[in-house]
Simulated scan of single mutants.
Amino acid sequence: MTRTVYLNGDYLPETEAKVSIFDRAFLMADGIYEVTSVLEGKLIDFPGHATRLQRSLSELDLRAPCTMEELLEIHRELIRVNEITEGLVYLQITRGAPGDRDFVFPDPETTEPTIVLFTQNKPGLATSPMADTGMKIISIEDQRWGRRDIKTVQLLYPSMGKMMAKKAGCDDAWMVEDGFVTEGTSNNAYIVKGNKIITRALSNDILHGITRAAVLRFATEAQMEVEERNFSIEEAQGADEAFITSASAFVMPVVEIDGTAVGDGKPGHRAKRLREIYLEESLKMAI
């Protein structure tokens, strides 16, 4: 089945969608993106993703090509025409192709951005077997640029990190800077000690995860203590539990770090419970 995608105001077969070779995302990685999960045909936490998108646009001095209300309708139409029950909607906005290749770009108000959206069909997204087995991760040096709080399309090093993990027979990698874990290649990282959930505080060092914000709110409501601070790989290996969060993985337990079992080497009950709460509450608010 050929997907219908959205490109600059038009709904097109994916085989007909084309972007200029001078688009600055292609030449300079000058663009941002968001990924919103779809469960039961509805968007999970779309308002959070829209808010972060607006922040990313502002940080890069990019002009929004449409309103957030219009963006919601585009998401819904793509879900409808592509018959997505469980899956993802990928959104990318770039500075477009304002001219020939140049490090200097013109006034954003005179530049027409490029906007692309497409769906990915992911049956079983909410019932991933990994939620029962847990993830094995490795640690790698964090070699990304300093503005990780902006969700840009500069994803080469995270991609390389995932390939390092795959080569090591693991599922993902946690990045380490100055002795402390920043985040996973495409997710936020957490450890659990007793009834306390520990995760790095928000800053330019990590992405301000939409799922992160929801999970920490749900954890507090469930009478779990939350502490936002740095932690090392060694502390994580000695924790009772560990897990990650992201828009597509939701809450996923981590059972091994650099070959050392976390806790008893099985998914912890707090991570499992937070996954249940997140999916249940998010579906209630889905649009």
Rank of each mutant, 00 (worst) to 15 (best):
M1L: 13
M1S: 13
T2Q: 15
T4C: 08
N8M: 10
G9N: 10
T15V: 06
K18P: 04
V19R: 02
I21A: 06
D23Q: 04
R24C: 05
A25P: 03
F26K: 04
A29P: 01
T36W: 00
V38W: 10
E40V: 04
E40S: 05
G41S: 13
D45V: 09
G48P: 09
G48S: 07
A50E: 14
T51A: 10
T51R: 12
S58K: 05
S58Q: 01
E59S: 07
D61A: 08
L62G: 10
R63M: 14
R63I: 09
C66H: 09
E69F: 03
E70S: 12
E73Q: 12
I74V: 07
H75N: 03
H75Y: 15
R80Y: 03
V81T: 11
E83W: 04
I84T: 01
T85E: 06
T85M: 03
Y90R: 09
Q92P: 08
Q92D: 10
Q92S: 15
G96R: 14
G96M: 13
A97G: 12
D102R: 09
F103H: 08
P108Y: 07
E109R: 00
E109N: 04
T110V: 00
I115D: 00
Q120R: 01
K122E: 01
P123M: 00
P123A: 02
M130T: 05
G134V: 08
I138H: 11
I138K: 05
E141F: 00
D142W: 01
R144S: 08
G146P: 00
G146H: 13
Q154E: 14
P158K: 09
S159C: 07
G161P: 05
M163N: 07
M163D: 08
M163R: 12
A165T: 11
K166Q: 08
D172V: 00
A173M: 15
A173I: 06
W174E: 10
D178I: 02
T182I: 12
E183Y: 02
T185Y: 06
N187V: 00
N188S: 10
Y190T: 00
V192H: 07
K193Q: 06
G194S: 02
N195T: 02
K196P: 02
I197A: 02
I198F: 00
T199D: 04
R200P: 03
L207A: 06
H208G: 13
G209V: 13
R212E: 11
A214Q: 11
L216K: 11
L216N: 12
F218I: 12
A219C: 12
T220H: 13
E221V: 12
E227A: 07
R229F: 04
N230I: 03
S232K: 10
E235T: 07
A239W: 05
A239G: 05
A242Y: 03
I244Y: 01
T245Y: 05
S246V: 10
S246K: 01
A247C: 05
S248T: 15
A249Q: 14
M252H: 09
V255K: 01
I257F: 07
I257A: 10
G265D: 15
G265N: 09
R270E: 09
R270L: 14
R275D: 10
Y278W: 11
Y278I: 07
Y278L: 15
L279Q: 11
E280F: 12
E280L: 11
L283H: 10
K284F: 13
M285H: 15
